[in-house]
Nucleic acid binder design. Structure first.
Length: 563
RNA sequence: UGACCCAUGGUGUAAUGGUAACACUACGGUUUUUGGUACCGUCAUUCUAGGUUCGAGUCCUAGUGGGUCAACCA
């Protein structure tokens, strides 16, 4: 049935997970529709690594016409909170995915999980252990030495049943007893040495309140939730490889739906960190403003930075899926962002570091409205008008007193095109006592107007500009990588913060923007011509417009200069 | 000094026993009213050593290197 439905898809280019999945379909091992899940723990914000897992799980389900559940793995009331549930849901939706049905919670299965535990006890496959955490750890042995049996390992089924019920009824203190699966204390796999599957925690859960005072451990919740939801393929990162033996053991002993766990290598991106604890440290030590600081690797941070969701999806797709350690070049992420924004971002002119330019032969007091195209890559985005007049701002970097041959911009005696306006010729400049250039003087060719140029004058360079008296002052936040080292948390002998990039944020208090800037919307990326892609920050007000730099444009001149 | 996983250009991923492909980066070049975009070109004897085979990046063995595992976290 399923095989028939998928016959057009099977055999198309695929990663190793899709390959395994297709084998399962073709062999008849999986007969229902493909069902994946994304299982975040609601104890923090989602980051770029989660984005990859989301794209993988939802992407595979889409490809094979299946479904993806969103399931909150909320089995530890100590750290979890509804605040995170809402943030996670918003981030997934923003990335462009919709989960099947309503969202699920592992905590919805506490009753069923309890019954699973009873079944295990009844079959002599689980026991209540009164040992202390330290004692249990000692008896585990080491990876090279087998463990030893707990003195409580041979308790009778009846006693175990009674004690476990007592645990549930709150008769014992936190940490005084646990329920352990009886597997194999000599297994080379540490996770099979009678893992703890239930512990006592007299704490209020974000959803079940005080209904329970025992909570299942990951190994007795995750896989079982997969089975309950009939997840066909449970995709997780490599470090869960050792849990798979237990995952399968429990499916067999509990006789539940045989979900299949497949592990892949988690993604590392150069100059980014994804550890929740370390991300939190950045906030606590004041290195960044919050979880959604545009420098953060969080999804909310990337949103505020202006990364389009489509670019993040493309990125995750291009990174691929495999099992080896990897460090992805940030340039790939930025290439995806530029590719997307080049197609979609409206162009605006903003002078970041302004210098006054006077067009001496342009009549004083006069002005005109010039029509400028919004996006050369997309005609349907139309055009706008820009005021032009005698006094304008240009970029300080676009003028040199004694420019080299290859400098295609302005200098004494040189000509350039003002984008969408006229060609101007530099006649001179003025300096103050410190040698600082205060003004550039030019003449313009009235017959060189953009679109109807009959001047015959050639200009190699084109500059962006803004008319002085109609310029809008905006704050521009220029962001750079957060760290100076590609793997800042991989140095055993060095602290992460030693690699903090002190220049990761540079604020320009008053850049000069063309009037159309006031129409920009939060979350809709624009291109500041010749400068980069930017997005309006949600903290903007009518009095103070703030833009965040998403990514610069590629700059081959800068490269040339460096040589 | 155990078990398990991994090893292909600078980076990431492909090649499913038949002579290394794609993307990003870098470097050259063409086009350009964004030094952007687009387009063209250049950059690898697949960790090492044996073996199987007419043929090995792919299969086998050993070695080397890297990673994971001993939370009442997930």
């Amino acid at each position: 049935m399923l095989k028939e439905e998928l016959k057009d898809i099977l055999g198309s280019p695929r990663n190793f997970i899709e390959e395994e999945l297709e084998k399962d379909v073709i062999s008849g091992k999986v007969t229902k529709e493909i069902h994946t899940r994304f299982p975040p723990e609601p104890n923090g914000y989602l980051h770029i690594g989660h984005a990859k897992a989301i794209c993988l799980n939802f992407g595979i389900a889409q490809k094979y016409k299946g479904k993806t559940n969103l399931r909150f793995d909320d089995t530890n009331p100590t750290t979890e909170d509804t605040e995170f549930v809402n943030a996670i849901k918003r981030d997934i939706n923003w990335l462009g995915f919709e989960w099947h049905d309503t969202e699920y919670y592992a905590s919805d299965y506490f009753g069923q999980l309890y019954q699973f535990a009873i079944k295990l006890i009844r079959e002599g496959l689980a026991y209540v252990d009164d040992s202390s955490p330290d004692e249990i750890a000692d008896m585990k042995g080491t990876p090279t030495e087998p463990g030893t049996d707990s003195p409580y390992r041979s308790r009778s089924v009846e006693e175990n049943l009674r004690l476990f019920e007592g645990m549930k009824n709150g008769e014992y203190e936190d940490g005084s007893r646990v329920l352990r699966a009886k597997v194999d204390m000599a297994s080379p796999n540490m996770h099979m040495r009678d893992p703890v599957i239930y512990r006592i925690k007299k704490e209020t859960h974000h959803r079940t309140g005080d209904e329970w005072c025992i909570y299942p451990m990951y190994d007795f919740a995750h896989g079982q939730s997969d089975s309950i939801e009939e997840i066909t393929h449970s995709l997780c990162s490599l470090e869960f490889r050792h849990h798979r033996d237990l995952y399968n053991w429990l499916i067999e002993k509990l006789e539940i739906f045989p979900s299949r766990q497949i592990e892949f290598a988690r993604m590392n991106v150069a100059y980014m960190i994804t550890s929740k604890r370390k991300l939190l440290r950045l906030i606590q030590e004041g290195k960044v403003a919050a979880w959604d600081d545009p420098r953060m690797s969080t999804i909310s941070g990337m949103r505020r930075r202006g990364y389009p969701p489509a670019a993040i999806r493309t990125f995750c797709d291009k990174v691929g899926i495999a099992k080896r350690d990897n460090v992805i070049d940030m340039a790939l992420l930025e290439a995806c962002v530029r590719e997307e924004m080049n197609k979609t971002a409206a162009r605006l002119m903003v002078v970041l570091n302004p210098i006054k330019l006077v067009i001496t032969n342009y009549p004083e007091g006069e002005s005109e409205e010039l029509t400028v195209i919004n996006n050369p890559e997309d005609e349907s985005m139309g055009s706008r008008t820009m005021p032009f007049g005698r006094e304008i701002y240009i970029e300080r970097d676009d003028f040199m007193i004694d420019p080299p041959r290859k400098f295609f911009r302005l200098g004494p005696g040189r000509s350039v095109r003002l984008k969408g306006a006229y060609i101007i010729h530099c006649e001179g400049y003025e300096q103050d006592g410190n040698g600082e250039i205060t003004q550039i003087n030019c003449t313009y060719y009235p017959d060189s107007k953009s679109g109807s140029d009959t001047s015959g004058v050639k200009a190699k360079g084109t500059l962006h500009w803004v008319k002085m008296d109609s310029a809008v002052d905006i704050q521009v936040n220029q962001y750079d990588r957060l760290f100076t080292d590609p793997t800042p948390d991989a140095h055993e002998d060095r602290d992460l913060m030693e690699f903090y990039n002190e220049e990761s944020l540079h604020i320009i208090p008053a850049a000069k923007a063309e009037p159309a800037i006031v129409d920009a919307e939060v979350g809709v990326g624009v291109q500041f011509m010749r400068k980069g892609y930017f997005v309006k920050d949600p903290d903007s007000t009518d009095e103070q417009i703030v833009f965040n730099r998403t990514v610069t444009l590629k700059d081959t001149w800068k490269k040339l200069q460096a040589k």
